[in-house]
Simulated assay, not measured.
Amino acid sequence: MIHYNREKNKYVRTIKMITVHEIQTSAPQIFKTNLQEKVYRTLEDLRIPFERVDTDEVITMEDCTRINEKLNMKMVKTLFLCNRQQTEFYLFITCGDKPFRSKDFSNALAVSRVSFAPAELMETMLGTKVGAATVFSSLLDCDNKVQIVFDNDVLTEEYYGCSDGTTTGYMKIRTEDIVRKFLNYAKHKPTVIEV
């Protein structure tokens, strides 16, 4: 948030303090979306352990700072991308602090230039709203219309931090469990790129 500070006689940027509740190791008692319910049922079926926190609504990577501290990990940045014709779709998972450059992504995959997919497609294809894009949306992509693409740097981290499909629930899971167990179950073979 940007506001004018009269004492300093200039505009200053402040980071909104997000409330982050205590760490849980079980699913929420009430699910907010169909995807969120499917996420926790799948993790239970696959016996994938996790830690999670409930939060105020979180939209930006800056909002994730307190979540990272609470769960002692780094939240990934998950971007829903498409080509100009909206016929090719990508879920790009990169480090939270790494800037996204469409040209670098497109060159690494040898595809035409991509941009952010429209919010309405995010809701219909991924089952999430802006700020909640997650690898777990692959559970809804039964026709494999969305290609999962990992920045190699994400795979070097022991833990994977991400949304549970909502903007108020965030998780910490072993990266290996996401890549080897979960994505295998979701029938999505990820592509790994260096950007």
Rank of each mutant, 00 (worst) to 15 (best):
N107S: 15
E7N: 12
I148V: 08
G161N: 13
S26I: 08
T55M: 06
T156F: 09
A110K: 15
K38S: 13
A186Q: 02
S137G: 02
T175M: 10
A117G: 00
S112L: 09
M75G: 00
K38P: 05
G131F: 02
G165H: 03
M122E: 05
I18P: 02
G161M: 10
I2N: 14
I193A: 09
T87V: 07
D45W: 03
F89Q: 07
D45Q: 12
I18S: 00
Y170M: 10
V179K: 15
E157C: 01
T134S: 13
L71Q: 02
D97C: 10
V12W: 07
Y185I: 12
R41W: 08
L79A: 04
K172S: 01
N107H: 13
F92G: 05
E22Y: 01
T55R: 00
T78F: 05
L81S: 08
V195R: 07
E37L: 06
M75C: 07
E176W: 01
T156I: 11
T65Q: 08
F150Q: 08
N83E: 05
E120I: 07
T60P: 02
F31C: 15
T168W: 00
G161K: 11
S163K: 05
Q24A: 04
A186P: 03
V111A: 09
F105T: 00
L46C: 11
C162M: 11
Q24S: 04
K189H: 07
C142M: 08
K172C: 02
N107L: 11
K181F: 01
F31M: 15
T175G: 06
D164Y: 02
I30K: 15
R113L: 12
L43N: 11
K10H: 09
V149H: 06
T33K: 02
C142E: 14
F31D: 12
K38Q: 15
V179G: 06
L139Q: 08
Q86Y: 03
T55A: 05
N72G: 09
G127S: 11
I15T: 14
K38M: 15
V154M: 06
T19H: 13
T55F: 01
N144K: 11
V135F: 09
K189N: 15
T156V: 06
L121F: 04
G161H: 07
Y159D: 02
Y4I: 00
N107G: 06
M75Q: 10
Y40T: 05
R6V: 14
L109Q: 04
Q147H: 10
T60Q: 09
D63K: 01
Q29V: 08
V130T: 14
I59L: 15
V130N: 05
Q36V: 03
D97R: 02
A119V: 12
D153G: 04
V53Q: 00
V135Q: 05
F182Y: 06
K38H: 09
I93H: 07
A110V: 11
D56A: 12
M73P: 07
M1P: 00
T191K: 13
T134H: 08
K103I: 05
T191V: 09
T167L: 02
F89M: 08
M61K: 07
A110C: 10
N83V: 05
Q29W: 08
Y40R: 05
Q29F: 13
P118Y: 01
V53I: 04
K187E: 13
E123K: 14
N9D: 14
R41S: 11
